Computed example of a mutant assay.
Amino acid sequence: MASRVTRPTRADLAAARGRSIDDVLAPDLDVLFCGINPSLWSGATGHHFARPGNRFWAALHRAGFTPRLLRPDEQAELLDHRLGVTNLVRKATARADELSEEELRAGARRLTDLVGRFRPRLVAVVGVSAYRVAFGRPRAAVGPQDERIAGRPVWVLPNPSGLNAQWQLPALAEEFRRMREHVPEQYR
C-alpha cells in the first residue's frame, strides 16, 4: 500500500517549526512510547516518527509489537495493539539538541501527568540522553530503570532517528523486543 503522506516541501518544513502534533493515547495501554520531540517532518505531517530514515516503525514491527509494518500516517492503529505515543516536548524542531534543559524537565512533568491519568503498564522513553536530562538521571542507560514514572515501570530505548548511527535497525529491534517481553504482567 502506498503512503498517503505527501512529502513536505522546504516551506512546509520551515512552517512546521514549533508546531505540535497530537498524542496517540487511551487508557489501559500496554506501552506508552515517549519520543523526545517531533521532527520538522512530523510537525509538517502531523505524524509521530514520520521523517524518512527514522526506524521507530520498523523496530516496533520487527520486535513483534505490530503484525505488519505500520506507516506514520497509520499511527492511530497503535491503539488497536494497546500502544500509544507522545513526546516529552511538544514543539517540532530540526534536531532534538535544539531543546533546552528546562524544556526537557517540563516535558518530564507533562509525561508524569499523562502517565498518572492514562496508567499504561509500561512507559518507554525513546532517547537515553533526553531521559537523563529530563528526569535528572545522568547515569541512566538503555534498558529498564529502577525509577518509575507515576508508579509505572520505565524502559529507556535508544533514539531511532537515522542520526543515531550508533544503533542500527537490528539492534534497535532487539532492544524493543527485549522490552516487549518485560511488559509487567501484574498490570494486565
Rank of each mutant, 00 (worst) to 15 (best):
K91Q: 12
V154L: 14
Q145T: 07
A94M: 06
L70P: 06
R68K: 12
T86L: 07
V123K: 02
Q75E: 14
A130P: 04
A106D: 15
A76Y: 10
L114Q: 10
L88R: 06
G143Y: 01
P158R: 03
V154P: 10
P160V: 00
G107S: 01
A130F: 00
P158Y: 04
T93F: 09
F135I: 02
Y131F: 13
L163E: 14
G162S: 14
A94R: 08
L88I: 05
G107F: 01
L163M: 14
R90Y: 06
R121L: 08
A141P: 09
Q145S: 09
Y131R: 04
R119Q: 12
L88S: 09
E101K: 13
V126D: 03
R82F: 09
E147S: 13
T112A: 06
A140K: 05
E101M: 13
A94S: 08
G84K: 12
G107Y: 05
R148A: 07
L79D: 13
A124P: 01
G127E: 02
L157C: 08
E77L: 10
T93E: 08
P67H: 07
A94E: 15
L157G: 02
A96D: 07
S100A: 10
V123N: 07
L122D: 02
A150Y: 00
R139F: 15
V85F: 11
F135E: 05
R137Q: 14
A140Q: 03
R90K: 13
L70A: 09
D97F: 15
R148E: 13
E98P: 05
V123H: 10
R68A: 11
T93R: 15
L122S: 12
T112Y: 10
R139H: 11
D97A: 04
R105E: 13
V123P: 11
G136L: 07
F135K: 05
G107W: 06
R95P: 04
Q75V: 06
G116D: 13
Q145P: 12
S161Q: 07
D146Q: 15
A94V: 05
L122E: 05
G116R: 12
R82M: 05
E98Q: 15
T86E: 01
G143C: 09
R71C: 03
R137D: 14
P160F: 05
S129E: 15
E74N: 03
V125Q: 00
P72L: 06
A76H: 11
L104H: 00
A150N: 07
E103T: 05
A124F: 07
P153I: 10
P120E: 11
F118V: 04
V154H: 01
F65T: 02
R132C: 01
L70K: 04
P158H: 03
R71F: 01
V115L: 14
P67L: 09
A94Y: 00
T93K: 10
D80T: 15
L99E: 01
S129Y: 12
P67I: 11
